[in-house]
Structures are given as structure tokens and as C-alpha cells.
């Protein structure tokens, strides 16, 4: 039995400015500035619509048709500005490229932001674990930031996490067909190719 193979993308929405309503009194710490909550107007349908239209703008009807059936929002958390997408494995790069080209939250008068793909995986379980891990680290780092001790361990851990993510992603992205990798981070790649 042939299975449909998917990729799951864990995406963060990063903001770079304070929301327009708030006063610019005190300086916001960088950590909290980048990880602001998204407006609750952002529904999964709106997100899908935004991504679809961006794919259509970049890749035309051909690309939009390719991802039309398989694109799905598995999880959307406006509080942590995180969402998980599911796309077929053959076309996940199209969606990823479209995310790189989106510069606003896809709602009416959306704020400018950057969509950052932090994890690509073959199974939804690994992506969920990663999302939970990141959220926990973020909370710890934010607590430290509020406590006022800069350069403390949790903030360093988060920095190290972001760094190692980009490098481990390098490795897992570099494996196009999902070959088994010895790295534990790239386990998901192996999982997806096991039962093919």
C-alpha cells in the first residue's frame, strides 16, 4: 500500500516592532519583542488563504494547484505565534518559499512580520515535541529576562537552541529524499523513509 508522504513545517511568526496601539515608553526586551502574540483574528482559514494566494503569486496556477489539496493547518496558536502546516513532500518547498515572501500577518491591516520555519519533519509528533520544547525554553528565558539577570543560563540555552536549530536544519534540509541520518535531530527524516 502506497502512503501519501507529507512534510510538517513548524513556523514561528516574528515581530520586529511594538504594536501601534502601545505607548513607546520603556524599551521592550528583544526576546519579548520578537515573540509577541498574534492577533486572535488570525483563523486557520485566513492563514491558508494567505499562503495560497502567495503561492499563486509566486508559482502561478501550476504551483497553487500542486499544493491545493495537501496544504492544511494542523495547529495554530496565536498566543505563542506558532503554527504547524502539513504539505505533501513533493511540494513543501513551494509553501516554504511562499512563507519567506510573506511580510504581513494575513488578516485585514495585518502587522508586518517575518515567518520563520524552525523545523521541518516527516512526522507530526516530532514537530509537536519541538514546539513544546521551544515554548518551554521561551518561557524560562522570558522569566530570566524579567528577573533582570541578562546573559543567564536559560537565555543562553535559548540562543543555543536557535543556533543549533539552524544548523541541524541545515543537515536535515540537505537530505532531500529523506535518507536515514545518524543525527538524532534528523530522526524524523529516517522515520518518514522507513515505511515507504
Amino acid at each position: 500500500m502506497v502512503r501519501l508522504k507529507d512534510r510538517y513545517l513548524l513556523v514561528n511568526i516574528i515581530y520586529t516592532d511594538v504594536p501601534p496601539g502601545q505607548a513607546k515608553g520603556g524599551a521592550v526586551p528583544d526576546l519579548l519583542l520578537y515573540n509577541q502574540p498574534t492577533t486572535s483574528e488570525l483563523r486557520p482559514q485566513l492563514l491558508l488563504k494567505g499562503i495560497r494566494s502567495e503561492v499563486a503569486a509566486l508559482f502561478g496556477d501550476c504551483g497553487a494547484g500542486a499544493i491545493d489539496r495537501s496544504l492544511q493547518v494542523k495547529y495554530l496558536s496565536p498566543a505563542t505565534s506558532t503554527f504547524i502546516l502539513r504539505i505533501s513532500r513533493a511540494h513543501y518547498r513551494l509553501v516554504w518559499a511562499a512563507l519567506a515572501f510573506m511580510s504581513r500577518v494575513p488578516v485585514r491591516d495585518g502587522r508586518p512580520c517575518v515567518f520563520r520555519v524552525v523545523r521541518v519533519s516527516g512526522t507530526v509528533r516530532k514537530v509537536e515535541e519541538e514546539a513544546v520544547r521551544r515554548a518551554r525554553l521561551l518561557v524560562l528565558a522570558a522569566k530570566d529576562e524579567m528577573a533582570g539577570n541578562r546573559g543567564s543560563s536559560a537565555a543562553d540555552a535559548l540562543g543555543a537552541l536557535l543556533r543549533s536549530d539552524s544548523s541541524s536544519q541545515a543537515r536535515s534540509v540537505a537530505v532531500p529524499g529523506g535518507q536515514v541520518d545518524s543525527e538524532p535531530e534528523a530522526e524524523s527524516q529516517g522515520l518518514s523513509s522507513d515505511d515507504g
Partner: peptide, 12 residues
């Protein structure tokens, strides 16, 4: 943009 996103763009 984040490095991985850029690399993906170039891969496309």
C-alpha cells in the same frame, strides 16, 4: 530572513 528560509528559496 532566517538562514534556512533563504537556503530554501535558493533551493527552489
Amino acid at each position: 530572513r532566517a538562514p534556512a528560509d533563504v537556503v530554501n528559496l535558493m533551493a527552489v
